[in-house]
Amino acid sequence: MRKTLALTLAALCALGTAGQALAATRLLETGSSLLYPLLNIWVAAYQKNDHAVQITTQSTGSGTGISQAISGVAQIGASDAYMPDGAMKSTPMLNIPLAISAQQINYNIPGLNNVHLNFSGPVLAGIYSGKIRYWNDSAIKAMNHDVAGKLPHQPIVPIHRTDGSGDTFIFSQYLSKSTPSWANGPGFGTTISWPGVSNAVGANGNPGMVQTCKHTRYSIAYIGVSFLNETNKAGLGYAALKNRDGHYVLPTAANIHAAAASMVGHTPKDDRISLVFAPGANSYPIINYEYAIVNPKQGNATVANSLKAFLNWAISANGGQQAHFLDAVHFLPLPGPVIAKSKAQIESIR
């Protein structure tokens, strides 16, 4: 029996290595489910030209991305959130922007999903803290005059992420920056302690958010824009959000671009900055840099070089920043000055 097992094992391992270049360098990317679709597109395209590297992509959540990049389990931690100061102090990591993303607020209200409802930060904070419990609440009606009569008397099911997530980070940042009571309460982070709302449901990853919102009538969710095709296919509505200047704006490319343009000049050398709630009449309020969190000390020259080559390709205008890659997930390319900063960071990987 043991012999059989040993043979089986050996056969399986032979099967495992067969057909693969034994010398291939393996890179593990894990983290943000918002970046995951883009990385899949990127890796498939990149590997056509570079066969010496194998890149595994995982959709786990930005929290895992950051922590596994720090622990060395993964080489690339994909994150929608930059690392906090405290963690940067104990373990200095590179926060390399890869693209600009946005987040939409989706909802599933039968009959109203083809309408773009208006929401403000304080109203969303009210929903997620259980103060606004029904869809026909006066606060919601007040900013949606056109459909006020159609808003149903149904309990709202707020859906939040259960995993550590950059989407939670930028969503809660929008609430914190627009609503003082939220800032002093749950605050913002990749994981926050959600106020106890009896209907609230947790979901895992952006895919889980889409699934849960699709299957749950009268629910509301915050979902990364790279899932726009899926939320549209699922028939969910998406909202216009009140920006810093008081206008309700949709997550269109123009509005995301407007927000990014107003923040590019402020981006520091280490690229760690929040783009949420940017000033400007057309600025869409929930946008962010998508980051690769990378340990500058890889310790292994081969790994470091493969990693640099891939990241440099990802941020180059004739590489990963090409429109046909980014458009597929509704991301915007990095502005020139930010690419230069990213490049400088990538070059410091050893």
Binding site: T60, G61, G63, T64, I66, S67, Q68, S71, P84, G86, A87, S90, T91, T162, D163, G164, G189, T190, T191, S198, N199, A200, V201, G202, N204
Partner: peptide, 22 residues
């Protein structure tokens, strides 16, 4: 009909969040 959570489920779903705690 309302959501619950169990210890076992929390350990799986919250570990990745916990990892972000420096």
């Amino acid at each position: 009909f309302q959501p619950v959570n169990t210890i076992a489920a929390v350990i799986v779903s919250q570990l990745e969040s916990a990892l972000t705690d420096s």
